[in-house]
Amino acid sequence: MGTIIEGVREAVYLITGLDPEILNIISVSLRVTGTALIFAILIGMPLGTFLGMVNFPGKKLFTALLYTGMGFPPVVIGLFVFIFFSASGPFGFLNWLFTPNAIIVAQTIIAFPLVAGFVMTAVMGIDRNLLRQMESLGASRLQLLWTTIKEARLGSVVAVVAGFGAIISEVGAVMLVGGNIRGRTRVLTTAIVLETRQGRFGLAIALGIILLTIAFILNIIMINLQEKEID
């Protein structure tokens, strides 16, 4: 129990004291995860919308693959990204391994099936009659798509939250492809592993509290967004 109280105290001290190393870790975490989330949305939302609206041969198989992707062990994705971006791998020439770019790639691959899956479910839940009616009233295709997106927006918010939660808290893949380099690829989760390994539980807990706080603030923002849209 003492360790946790010490951790809370340390967290407050670290944040109020604006410790440059901690601020750097937070900034790398947010930058990398934020970028990956944008890519995951750019890929996942259109993909989810498409799968939710259109039937095509092999869709079942595709959906099953997507669902598997939603539960794929992140560390395995990390391993694949590692091998692909390793100097001896096909994308080795990019020199992305052990840089934030490699982390962004891994996190995007982890998050986009989640985003796509949730968006797909949301789109499938839309009232088909509404779209048919609109069509018969002469709505343009663009208007139809827009209505679909509007109707599915609540599910889309959940999709973004789920994607963000999955990658901000991920550690295995980030450690593997980022290398936990101080000041460059050290993020909150890998810093927690490092501090725990060295027995500095107080500091590890403090970083954990910071991580939780960030997730909490983001979720508050998302809930507010959701409520506004319901009104």
Partner: peptide, 9 residues
């Protein structure tokens, strides 16, 4: 509509 969405996608 399907084609359109495909295209958009």
């Amino acid at each position: 509509m399907k084609d359109q969405i495909c295209l958009q996608f």
